[in-house]
């Protein structure tokens, strides 16, 4: 089966900045894929290269087997992009905006789908409202609707929930998850790592234009197997446990243990030394831990 997105040996420089540095990436059809990285990691540049918004210095990019440069008409019809910036044309209302976007993609009679997209994104009441009069969250919904107006099989969302309230986030994710279940491939960049952890089946982590980690979300989380114990003690931590300290603030300790089985010896040590436990909490490894370890790693 053709990959939804295929990037090979991609390079893009802006002056001395190597924004995308030899990226190889293959995203299969139907995936919900996460592209994570700190600001300036090259996520948006990579998306712009895929969408034809930027010209690569070298490398090959294709959407469902169609080269984004040589077969740009087909590849762009197969791709829907929600840009990161909150941009809009103040000359038009919501319905006009979506009709025009349909027209750009060669669709003339698209009213039924426009109505459906507006319904799913709670935009129906605002259909005749000028874009200038919409709140930031509403404008973000229109951006999503514009990306979906031509029913693209591959949808790229570049930080679609930045600055968006919880209600909209949930509405949007429900709709996007439905699209994913219907077979659309979703590529997501987000700063909300809990979103990526909850939604994405696979994740690539970028730093300085390079992919630092690429695996299933489960495997990435598993790569940091272990248990973290947060303790508030009535005395000092026994010397035998000092190597396991991850953080310490006064009597508050965060210990990193290789497994749940290691917890019992820690408790026994505290008991033997007569150190009273005031509070104790177990913490699971989350994507943020993995992210911090990966992007914090030297290149």
């Amino acid at each position: 089966m053709l990959p939804a997105v295929d990037v090979r040996k991609a390079h893009k420089r802006y002056g001395s900045l190597h924004a995308v540095d030899g990226v190889d990436l293959r995203i299969e059809q139907g995936e919900f894929f996460g592209l994570l990285g700190p600001n300036g990691a090259g996520k948006t540049t990579l998306i712009n290269l895929l969408a034809g918004l930027a010209r690569p210095d070298s490398g090959q990019f294709s959407i469902l087997g169609h080269d984004v440069v040589k077969q740009y008409r087909t590849s762009r019809r197969l791709l829907g992009v929600v840009p990161q910036e909150l941009v809009f044309d103040p000359n038009f209302n919501v319905r006009e905006t979506l009709r025009l976007q349909s027209g750009y993609f060669g669709l003339r009679h698209n009213e039924a789908w426009i109505d459906e997209v507006m319904h799913h994104l709670d935009l129906t009441d605002k259909a005749e409202t000028n874009m200038r009069r919409l709140s930031g969250g509403m404008k973000r919904r229109v951006l999503v609707a514009q990306a979906l107006v031509h029913k693209p099989p591959v949808i790229v969302l570049d930080e679609p929930t930045a600055g968006v309230d919880v209600e909209l986030r949930q509405t949007m994710w429900r709709f996007i998850q439905q699209l994913n279940r219907d077979g659309h491939t979703i590529v997501l960049t987000t700063h909300y790592l809990e979103e990526a952890e909850a939604l994405c089946g696979r994740i690539a982590m970028l730093k300085q234009g390079r992919i630092m980690a690429l695996d299933s979300t489960q495997n990435l989380l598993g790569s940091m197997a272990g248990v973290r114990v947060r303790l508030k003690l009535a005395g000092a931590l026994p010397a035998a446990l000092l190597p396991q300290i991850a953080e310490q603030t006064g009597e508050d300790y965060l210990l990193e243990l290789p497994s749940y089985q290691s917890l019992e010896p820690v408790l026994a040590e505290l008991r033997m030394d007569g150190v009273e436990i005031k509070e104790m909490a177990l913490e699971q490894t989350d994507l943020e831990d993995v992210f911090m370890r990966v992007v914090g790693r030297a290149c």
Partner: peptide
Amino acid sequence: ASKITGNLVFALLAPIA
């Protein structure tokens, strides 16, 4: 104006020669 305000992106994303 479309370029400076950023909304030209909608035409640039489309299959327009």
